[in-house]
């Protein structure tokens, strides 16, 4: 399973791959991935690669990702070429009209790739006081809701409980469930 996770520096995208890693390790699987630290983290486009299985390289090659997890719809479009034919993009969306773009829908349908959108900002604004840092787990919930990514909602919840700081566990669980309901 190969994931590409994209977003904007400061959105906390590194935590998502930690959760995926925790799940894989508990199943005894090998993992390798690549993260962005440093200047590139400061508000610019960021990308994490994460691979579960027998790989040596931490990078996902274009056309090979099973899942693209996007914290930002613009970053999703910019990185869609990582998706393999038949792959799934789970995209946090703030302006849903982008999904209707004819060039994008043509590309997606030609390679039988699927787009799953979730209105994460709206949900977090409405349900969690606009604490957008919880996007990183909300999107994992959305991935499970869409039935893709090879992990279950129970596994995600278990991992989030184990990894999140104690005082934020309940908030994290709530955000996972919001995402899950958003795409189910």
């Amino acid at each position: 399973m190969q994931y590409v996770i994209v977003g904007i520096g400061g959105q906390g995208i590194l935590f998502s791959s930690r959760v995926l890693g925790h799940i894989a390790l508990s199943k005894g699987e090998r993992v390798i991935g690549s993260e962005v630290h440093g200047m590139a983290q400061r508000g610019g486009s960021v990308i994490s690669h994460f691979k579960v299985g027998d790989y040596n390289s931490p990078l996902v090659k274009a056309n090979e990702a099973d899942v693209l997890l996007a914290f930002d719809q613009n970053e999703a479009v910019r990185n869609m070429h990582f998706l393999k034919p038949g792959g799934h993009a789970v995209v946090n969306t703030h302006a849903p009209a982008f999904a209707e773009n004819p060039s994008l829908t043509k590309w997606m349908s030609e390679r039988e790739a699927r787009l799953h959108t979730v209105m994460g900002y709206d949900m977090l604004k409405k349900e969690m006081g606009g604490r957008f840092l919880f996007l990183n787990v909300l999107i994992l919930g959305a991935m499970c809701g869409a039935g893709v990514g090879g992990v279950t909602i129970e596994e995600v919840l278990e991992a989030v409980r184990a990894l999140a700081p104690a005082k934020f566990v309940e908030d994290n669980v709530k955000a996972v469930n919001l995402g899950y309901e958003g795409t189910k």
Binding site: V77, F98, L104, E110
Partner: peptide
């Protein structure tokens, strides 16, 4: 097609910025 989509949607890479 993806390049076109990015152009049509006015999407460019985000440069790093001060927080």
């Amino acid at each position: 097609d993806l390049r076109k989509a990015a152009e049509e949607l006015n999407i460019t890479p985000r440069r790093p910025m001060l927080c």
